[in-house]
Design a protein around this nucleic acid. Structure first.
Length: 313
DNA sequence: CGCTTTTGACCGGCGC
DNA sequence: GCGCCGGTCAAAAGCG
């Protein structure tokens, strides 16, 4: 995994200062030293209003504590979800299909679509998908619809087309719907969908037709700074720049590896129907943390870094 | 000149 | 059957 990133994504939410006795213990001089610029002079000048400062410090530290707790909860939820998912995958549970949502809708909402049960592995080990492609994409299409609509009973074709969803932070001013993942893609269509003002781009692997993989990229309706890439199928060749199965995403100068295959902690935020509650919880927490998209992005990057760190140890 | 992207047309599934 | 919608096709334009 390539997680060396030029981007500074250290969890800079005062987690370094999460030492429980941080606020009480810290002498004012240290506070002064740890702050910078104009803020520093402010601290110096207001030396006499120490009680005010202490109050503010306490307030900030309690906020930090809350954030820390939230992150811990997110992490717990993530782990729980992850374990659950692994269990399901190992069992190849057939009943995964008929959980909730007996929706009569023709198609699921995009956000629901993102909660695709099969979404976790881009299938490095799965190569049966390539077999069916030369029957043409109709079959694939059928299977996909089968999956989407939950209309028919589960058959063993269920697992043939791997679908995974990857959330990639991207500059919201960047209108190009490109997610660099080490593979070469050829765009074959673009559509504006009903539930999302931003268009959806359709890509095929440039190795097509021998490689059946397709991807859809669309800006998240909720958070325009996030690109949602949906991969369908499995590459039957090695990627030109990346190890197979890893989606190495370059955002600006930073490189974030989105490992969708290995058992370790994944960076991609992926939804599972059974994990929807957790996901919603996470999102609510996230939105309650801030309305500032910059903060959100920084937080996401920070969490990503932490997850990566832990997954390596 | 060949490859890629753009974009309107077309197709098939689905709900009403 | 009709209209809506997502997905795909394919001709034209763009680009190196």
């Amino acid at each position: 995994m390539d997680c060396s990133s030029p981007l500074d994504i250290s969890l800079n939410l005062n987690t370094n200062s999460f030492d429980s006795n941080f606020p009480a213990k810290l002498p004012k001089k240290e506070v002064k030293a740890s702050t910078s610029g104009g803020v520093e002079s402010k601290w110096l000048v207001k030396d006499k209003s120490a009680s005010e400062l202490r109050e503010e410090l306490n307030r900030v530290s309690s906020e930090n504590k809350k954030i820390k707790e939230m992150l811990a909860t997110v992490w717990e939820n993530y782990n729980a979800l992850h374990h659950h998912l692994e269990k399901l995958q190992s069992q190849k549970s057939p009943e995964i299909d008929h959980i909730e949502q007996p929706t009569k809708k023709r198609k699921q909402d995009p956000e629901e679509f993102l909660g695709f049960p099969n979404g976790l592995s881009s299938g490095k080990t799965e190569n049966s998908s390539s077999n069916q492609y030369h029957h043409h994409h109709h079959q694939q299409h059928e299977q996909k619809n089968q999956l989407l609509t939950c209309k028919r009973p589960v058959t063993d074709s269920f697992n043939k087309v791997k679908v995974s969803t990857v959330y990639v932070p991207a500059d919201s001013s960047d209108t190009s719907l490109t997610v660099k993942d080490g593979y070469q893609w050829r765009k074959y269509g673009q559509k504006v969908t009903r539930d999302n003002p931003s268009p959806r781009a359709y890509f095929r692997c440039s190795f097509a037709p021998s490689c059946p993989v397709k991807k859809k990229v669309q800006r998240s309706a909720e958070d325009p700074s996030i690109l949602v890439a949906t991969y369908e199928g499995t590459h039957n060749h090695l990627g030109p720049n990346a190890s197979e199965g890893d989606a190495t995403t370059q955002v600006g100068s930073s490189t974030v590896t989105l490992d969708m295959v290995h058992g370790g902690h994944r960076l991609a935020l992926e939804k599972n129907k059974r994990g929807t509650m957790q996901e919603v919880l996470v999102q609510q927490m996230a939105s309650s943390l801030t309305n500032d998209s910059n903060f959100t992005a920084a937080l996401a990057a920070a969490i990503t870094g932490r997850l990566m760190e832990q997954s390596r140890t």
